[in-house]
Every structure is written in C-alpha cells, then in structure tokens.
Amino acid sequence: MLSIKNLHASVDGHEILNGIDLDVKPGEVHAIMGPNGSGKSTLAGVLAGRAEYSVTEGRIDFLGKNLLEMAPEMRAREGLFLAFQYPVEIPGVNSSYFLRTALNEIRAHRGLDKVSALEFLKIIREKLELVEMDEKFLKRSVNEGFSGGEKKRNEILQMATLEPKLAVLDETDSGLDIDALRIVAGGVNALRSQENAFIVVTHYQRLLNYIVPDFVHVLYQGKIVKSGDKDLALHLEDFGYDWIKEQNGGQA
C-alpha cells in the first residue's frame, strides 16, 4: 500500500529526515515512536504534502502511484488521511459544510455521486456516535473554540467520514485524558479492516494498549533506528529513549 524508500527531507536547508524506509501493507497498524524533535511530524507532513518540506532524495509509492508528485488534495482523494497533531481552527467555515464538501470531492474522484445535505446527515450521525460527539459541533466553525480533546475527536470524526485507505495519526493521543483516549482508540479500532492501514505516531506507549500495533518503529534523528513488534513499545515504556540515544551516538 505504502512504500517509502530512502526518504530524505529538509526544511530551510536543514535535513530533518535522513533515509527512511517503511513498508505498510493493507490491514497493518504501524506505530512510530521517538523522542521530541526526532522527525515524526515531519514524516507525517511529507506524506500529506506539506509545502514547507522539500524531499531531497528517495521516493514514496502509494497504491502504486508516485505520492510525491501529487498535490495534497489528490493524496486525500487517493485515500490518504492525516490526523493533525495541532488541528487548525478555521473561523467562519462551517464544520458540516466543510466535511460534506470534502466527502463529495473524494466521492467524485472515486466516480461516486455527491451526497445531499440530508444523506450526509445520516452518514455523519453514525460517525458522531462513534466518537461520542454531539451534533451541535457540526453547526460550529471548523475546530473554533474546541477543547484539545474535542479537536482530536474531530480529527477521528473526519477520518471515519472520509474512509481513507491509509490514515496517519500524528500524536492524536497527546494531551488526552483516559476517556478521550479510549474514544479515539475506539474510533480507530472500529475502522480497522483488512483493506486499510494505519500509521500511529505517538510519544507514549499508553495508546498502544488500546490500538495494538503490528509493528513498532523508533524514529531518532530522522532515521528509523529500531523496529519490532508491540513489545518494543513496552520496552520503551520501561526504559525510556535514553538507550536509543546512546546506541545512536546522541546525547542521553
């Protein structure tokens, strides 16, 4: 589904990712962990097509197509979704209108008919239930005045509505209390299937108690320095990141 080969990316001339290789197959959940500043959000941003990052080397194939040649909206229409670490507040853009427009753009790309406002309401009600959000959120501007937890749940709501093939969750668990964490994880688990895949970026092992990954990768200084199964996350929980830093010549 996704194949990243020798990916190098920089911002303002500083190399942040230096040689990432990753393969994600349908049905898999990959966790990416690592200390602050190791490049997790950069990787997520490069996947989604953030303009400020330039890819200096390597390639990314997504469902057999060259991802790096696609504009961000094309990546989304092809089935990629990024849950933002810091979702943006957009005053004046109505949540419901925004999400229906997005859904219809994606449906059009897949050769499906547009959904009417009424049909959309039926779809969205089911998804709202999944993330335990009230319908009144739809009347508000996108993320405006939402609490941190509400913003993260809204990301999951959007993901559930747009039904991506590959979802990248960038620290969706950070800053959540245990109830919100359970809701977010429940949303992801409900969507898991043999056809789609997830890349779950997290700083804490806690989330992985709820979303059990098939693979865990440790990102450090822009490289995947260790990969394993879910036990690697438990090990990191017990011993922290210092041993990773030491092994890789960083400052512990």
Partner: peptide, 24 residues
C-alpha cells in the same frame, strides 16, 4: 496557509479552499 493546507488535506482543491476562506 495552514488553514488552506488543512482543507486540502481533506480532499478539497486549493482554489475551492481559498474560496471557502474568503467566503468565511
């Protein structure tokens, strides 16, 4: 720009995203 990127990352084309922002 961050808002535009957010809208585009949901499948909305750049021109339409800008229109939405102006409309808002």
């Amino acid at each position: 720009e961050e808002s535009i990127f957010y809208l585009c990352s949901r499948g909305i084309g750049k021109a339409m995203a800008k229109n939405l922002m102006m409309q808002a």
